[in-house]
Design a protein around this nucleic acid. Structure first.
Length: 663
DNA sequence: GTAGGGTTAG
């Protein structure tokens, strides 16, 4: 509970002769107790439940009550107690602020700040709110913004702190909005609000924002400040205009190691490794960041040899150095070496674990990923996200959703965010059950997740794959920016739902919007033609892939084989498989086998089935199709002996489970 | 105060 009574600055002089107010009358009053001497509990103004107990204040409070009662008339002795109480109250509020975790708690503490007229604590509250590790939902942002707007005294420091905190906690858009608003309040931005806002613009690639700040910087004296100049340099390096970064770098009177590092990072992002290495060699002082940046630069360009060499040469290594190496091995498909470094490193943090988990996820080793995840001591939001993503991307949607449930129950440090939902929604679309729709939407609104284009695209895929293509299209229309992924999802959605003309129109629209299709887009459009049985259009589309610099994948061949096969062009389908530059997987031969079943072709059916048998351990489905082909051709003996041999191998078909019976 | 290492959608 909050302290049982309120303290406020005396707003008017108390009436003379009233002993109750004698305490405040002389010397000139500083504070008085509003609710009288009985210290009766104020109508409970607040029910904050801070993490730390308020025992000290409570102890003091009872002591105070006792003292006040016994010294009721001895004004001079009561006042020091009273002031002390006030300071304790402030310190208690500070403690609570430190532990304030939710907007609700913040609102309650804020109410107490206002009621006690302790407005000097408001900036603290703002900073604490944004500094806390809890989720930065739009509600928090709005609340913080509200406090800043209504500060009794516009305070540049609170604004700057808030901008910096938002910028440091990945809330870049918010940081920039606050930066812009700050100036509407007539506050001159400090050098560190400028650099924070620039950082925010650089991170989200908000070019206009950063360039405006650059233009504005000249208005202030800050244009010669090394931090501001470094932030500007870094901004241009991040958005990829290295020439501008270079110009700022050249014109700087004073450079520190961060300036050099930012320039180095610019070269590395730009992909000019030789220039980066030259700068690295020229640096007057290298710190650990310089070494780490250079190592990850090499790792990103798949030069693990040079990365290793630098790693061995560097005078001091920190966690980031080891993590950069692990990440490099993971990105280069060397999970064993990554594991080796992971085992060797002197200390690990969550980044090390998460890098390994995502590494195993990328190579499809879900069990190893799960094993690492379960060994993690403190699972944070990103750890849950990486494991959920691992399940989602490795076709284990049920486990993804199960883990999401655990995450909701687990703890406060791991609240789902939009990245979590991207994978959760993806899992739901794999399950293709429309009933997940309302569940997703209620979770999203309950947790205050902002629906960005990324999430909406995942939802488009979900609704399209669950059969609600109209809803998907409505969402598609509402997208802020329709990108390649969104178009591909929608085209596939139309394709799966048999809307071939809509798919092909959308494909044209996408080309008109200068968006270059990739292999997923072609999967979508080919699926559409396949569903409609449009062989010629399919062929044309398949052949046009080269025009976009794309090699048809095994999946694309599979769709074409299916399309040709269903149309009865079995020989052609077989020739297409024979012409494949890569080895066809069982899906491709399976498509031909199915087509042979459809058209009762024993000769090709046997060939296709033989390939399927060689490629897949579980032969039951394929042999069942082949047996059916035999039966249709009245080759009862062959059908019988095939079924018998499969039974003999101990993998008898589970009754009613064959995917072919329904297909 | 600035910089480096990790998790999203088709």
């Amino acid at each position: 509970m909050f302290p049982s009574f309120c303290i406020a600055k005396a707003s008017r002089r108390p009436r003379a002769g009233n002993t109750r107010h004698q305490l405040c009358s002389s010397p000139p009053p500083k504070w008085c107790i509003r609710k009288g001497w009985s210290l009766a509990r104020c109508s409970s103004t607040c029910e904050v439940t801070p993490q730390e107990s308020s025992v000290n204040l409570k102890v003091f409070e009872s002591y105070f009550v006792e003292k006040v009662n016994s010294y009721l008339l001895k004004t001079a002795e009561a006042i020091p107690f009273f002031e002390l109480y006030f300071f304790m109250l402030v310190s208690q509020l500070n403690t609570w602020l430190k532990n304030c975790l939710t907007v609700n708690q913040a609102k309650q503490i804020h109410a107490q700040i206002l009621v006690n007229n302790l407005c000097s604590l408001e900036p603290r509250l703002v900073c604490q709110l944004v500094f806390s590790a809890f989720n930065f939902s739009p509600a928090v942002f709005q609340y913080v913004q509200g406090i800043l707007w209504h500060l009794q005294k516009p305070d540049s420091f609170s604004w700057s702190c808030t901008i910096r905190y938002f910028s440091q906690h990945g809330q870049f858009k918010e940081a920039f909005i606050l930066y812009a608003q700050m100036q509407r309040w007539g506050l001159c931005p400090s050098t560190f609000s400028i650099s924070s806002a620039l950082r925010a613009c650089g991170r989200i690639g908000y070019k206009i924002g950063g360039i405006s700040i650059h233009a504005q910087v000249n208005k202030y004296e800050s244009c010669h400040n090394v931090y501001v100049q470094t932030a500007l340099l870094d901004f241009y390096a991040k958005i990829g205009t290295v020439e501008n970064a270079q110009r700022i770098f050249d014109e700087m009177d004073e450079r520190n190691v961060v300036t050099w590092n930012s320039m180095l990072d610019g070269y590395l992002k730009y992909g000019d490794l030789a220039l980066a290495r030259q700068l690295f060699n020229e640096m007057p002082v290298k710190d650990i960041v310089s070494w780490n940046s250079m190592i990850s630069g090499y790792a990103r360009s798949r030069d693990m040899h040079r990365a290793c060499s630098l790693f061995q040469q560097m005078p001091d290594k920190n966690l980031a150095s080891w993590n950069a190496m692990i990440s490099g091995f993971v990105d280069n498909g060397k999970i064993d070496l990554a594991q080796c470094y992971f085992d060797t490193m002197p200390q690990r943090n969550n980044i090390s674990w998460i890098t390994m988990i995502s590494g195993y996820s990328k190579c499809g080793d879900v069990d190893s990923a799960r094993n690492l995840f379960s060994l993690m001591q403190e699972k944070d939001q990103l750890a849950f996200n990486s494991m959920i993503t691992c399940y989602a991307q490795n076709s284990r949607p049920k486990e993804a959703i199960q883990l999401f449930d655990e995450m909701l129950k687990a703890n406060f440090n791991a609240q789902p965010d939009k990245m979590t939902f991207a994978s959760v929604i993806s899992s739901c679309s794999q399950l293709g059950d429309l009933r997940f729709g309302p569940w997703i939407e209620s979770c999203v609104s309950r947790l205050g997740i902002e629906m960005d284009d990324h999430l909406v695209t995942a939802l488009i895929d979900f609704y399209a794959k669950s059969g609600s293509v109209d809803k998907a299209y409505v969402l598609f229309h509402g997208l802020y920016k329709k990108d390649l992924v969104a178009y591909s999802a929608m085209i596939l959605g139309f394709g799966l739902n048999g809307k071939v003309s809509a798919a092909s129109e959308l494909f044209e629209e996408m080309l008109g919007a200068q968006i270059c299709p990739n292999s997923v887009t072609f999967t979508g459009i080919l699926t559409a033609y396949n569903h409609a049985g449009l062989v010629e259009e399919g062929y044309q589309c398949f052949n046009s892939m080269k025009k976009y610099g794309l090699m048809p994948s095994t999946d694309h061949y599979g769709i074409m084989v299916d399309l040709l096969g269903r149309a009865g062009r079995l020989e052609e389908a077989y020739d297409l498989i024979a012409s494949m530059p890569v080895k066809p997987h069982a899906g491709v031969w399976g498509a031909l086998l199915l087509a042979c079943r459809l058209h009762d072709n024993v000769k090709l059916g046997e060939v296709a089935a033989r390939h399927c048998f060689n490629l897949e351990h579980d032969k039951t489905g394929y042999s069942s199709i082949l047996a059916n082909i035999y039966a249709s051709n009245e080759r009862w003996d062959d059908a019988k002996s095939l079924r018998k041999s499969v039974k003999h191998e101990g993998s008898a078909k589970m009754p009613g489970c064959s995917w072919i019976e329904s297909g």
